[in-house]
Design a protein around this nucleic acid. Structure first.
Length: 531
RNA sequence: GGGCCGUUAGCUCACCUGGCAGAGCUCCGGACUUUUAAUCCGGCGGAGCGGGUUCGAGUCCCGCACGGCCCUCCA
């Protein structure tokens, strides 16, 4: 905590909400709430008390009296307007609306997604207790003890014997009807968005549901969940620019991982035949609606499998995630995804189409292979696909595919057999050594997963790394460096292995129909506010 | 990195060709023992930042900051 540069006499900075440069109105609103809090403190009421003690969840109370739960009884369901069940409850939540009525006040209390009305009556609370309720603000956290009753208008309520402030809100909630609209505020202060928007809360839940579904599927298939380093001495496993950081004690630069791939395969080398990892990876690239510099990747490796098995697994994972979200009520039923106007059917077995076939079809050629670079270059020119001199035929074919084919693949499609030139970690195809057993899953024109039969020949791997090193020397900033530790592992023997990588954020976008990755990441990367 | 668009009260939105910036929510004061976006009466509060044009700028021009969308790159 001690900072030698900090003057010991330094005054603590005033709260930002009360700083001189804060908007006047906000200062006022905060000051009013703070005044209410100070008045409570003067009466001996602590505005931030500890929690604890048995609580009834609002959802459980509602289910007991209005639902089909185990506790629901006919007697409870028959509770009439104006009637008190006499059943004591103790609930807690955030005040999301107040309706004062002089000697009576109603509070709407939200606990998770469930709301329950609290009735605060002079008869029952006394003038002091009611005064305390009257002093509450929207956004405050409270605990209410009382009995379950129905108001005269029939609303299920807690007729309160005691209402306790358990967390004062000094800042106002967003508009209770419209919430926060401005994207910047929603992203920078997601807590405001969450407090105001059911959809925002559902999105956070959806991520948890999808993660649980993916883990369940992998666990059932006897995969072991593992963790590998985020700090890499050599960034590898993907073509991307890494973030650099520095370890002080070792005095070495380290890289935030761009992929866990190489470490996971080292675990397979070591004799763990089925492993997976879910975790953050970091790529030092621009921001866009589809790119956050940190994103969540699922990678899975299975010994003695090939890309065919990994495609089967991929399909099972995506379909299971979609089903789990629907069962959780977080998306519509059925294996259908919507992105904007586009509707996509996720059911059935997804087709597998060789990349070169798709390109040939797109350019109107009967067939296409990688033997004639000049021909591919002419095709790029004819279709206005810009190229670079150093690119080989495989890269040219990939460019054609990415520009002419991928954006138009709407239904789930496994694109297979990518050129070896652009797939430095994938096994060569037995039918064509210039191709690999690699696949990508494309849905609605977007890559969701990338996987392959792993390259297991250490000598071929070394040659591929050397090819990458040459590309790096020639100016390709994203080319992979040679990783001797990985090569040493391969020389110990990597069994035939299938691998897959799945971008969780993009899967969520697809399943929830969100056009921007910032909608599925709670706190997306933004440029810090200047100061 | 390039192009287009946006920024008005804490929040959600108005303000037509330049002429005293309005409303709802929130908040404050008052009334109300059955409301549920409670209602009724009264009130506080504002043009992102910096220049310019003009008698006069929220409005026109330039620059900056931040954001959104598209392109580029990746997953």
């Amino acid at each position: 905590m001690s900072d030698p540069t900090e003057s010991p006499q330094a005054e603590p900075a005033p709260p930002a909400s009360e700083a001189a440069d804060a908007p006047a109105r906000l200062r006022e609103l905060v000051a009013e709430r703070r005044a209410a809090m100070d008045a409570l403190r003067a009466q001996g009421v602590e505005p931030y008390p500890p929690g604890g003690g048995a609580l009834d969840r609002v959802g459980e109370v509602r289910a007991r009296f209005e639902g089909q739960g185990a506790e629901a009884t006919e007697e409870r369901a028959a509770l009439a307007p104006g009637e008190d069940s006499g059943e004591p409850v103790r609930v807690a939540g955030r005040v999301v609306a107040t309706r004062g009525h002089g000697r009576l006040a109603f509070l709407s209390l939200r606990d998770g997604e469930d709301e329950l009305q609290v009735m605060a009556r002079l008869d029952r609370l006394g003038s002091e207790g009611l005064a305390l309720v009257t002093e509450l603000h929207e956004g405050d956290w409270v605990r209410a003890e009382g009995t379950v009753a129905r108001s005269k208008r029939g609303e299920l309520s807690v007729d309160a014997d005691a209402v306790t402030l358990v967390g004062k809100a000094l800042r106002p909630l967003p508009d209770k009807w419209h919430g926060v609209r401005e994207p910047e505020t929603r992203y920078r202060h997601r807590e405001l968005d969450l407090a105001a928007s059911e959809q925002a809360r559902a999105t956070v839940r959806a991520r948890a549901v999808v993660l649980a579904a993916l883990r369940a599927e992998l666990d059932e298939r006897d995969y072991l969940e593992v963790e590998t380093p985020l700090l890499h001495p050599i960034p590898g496993g993907a073509n991307a620019t890494p973030f650099v950081t520095h370890h002080e004690a070792l005095d070495v630069d380290l890289y935030l991982r761009i992929a866990p791939e190489l470490y996971l395969k080292r675990l397979v080398v070591g004799g763990l035949p089925r492993v997976y990892e879910v975790g953050r990876v970091f790529r030092n690239e621009g921001l866009s609606t589809r790119h956050n510099p940190e994103f969540t990747m699922l990678e899975a490796y299975q010994a003695h499998a090939g890309y065919a098995e990994m495609m089967e697994l991929t399909q099972a994972l995506v379909q299971r995630a979609a089903t789990a979200l629907a069962q959780a009520g977080l998306r519509e039923e059925g294996l259908v995804a919507r992105l904007g106007e586009v509707e996509v059917d996720l059911s059935g077995r997804w087709p597998r189409r060789p990349m070169l076939d798709l390109v040939a079809q797109a350019v109107g050629e009967p067939d296409l292979d990688l033997s004639d670079r000049a021909r591919l270059a002419r095709l790029c020119a004819a279709h206005h696909v810009p190229i670079e001199e150093r690119w080989g035929p495989g890269k040219l074919a990939l460019e054609l595919y990415e520009k002419l084919v991928e954006p138009h693949l709407r239904e789930p499609t496994f694109v297979i057999d990518y050129p070896v030139e652009v797939s430095p970690l994938a096994r060569r195809h037995p039918d064509d050594p210039e191709l690999t057993q690699r696949y990508e899953l494309i849905v609605a024109g977007r890559e969701l997963t990338n996987g392959f039969s792993e390259l297991t020949d250490p000598d071929d791997q070394r040659a591929r790394f050397e090819e990458q090193a040459r590309a790096k020397a020639a100016g390709d900033a994203e080319a992979m460096p040679i990783d001797e530790d990985y090569l040493a592992a391969m020389e110990l023997g990597l069994p035939p292995t299938g691998g897959l990588g799945l971008g969780l954020d993009r899967l969520l976008m697809l399943l929830l129909g969100r056009e921007s990755i910032r909608e599925v990441v709670a706190f997306p990367t933004l440029r810090p506010r200047g100061r």
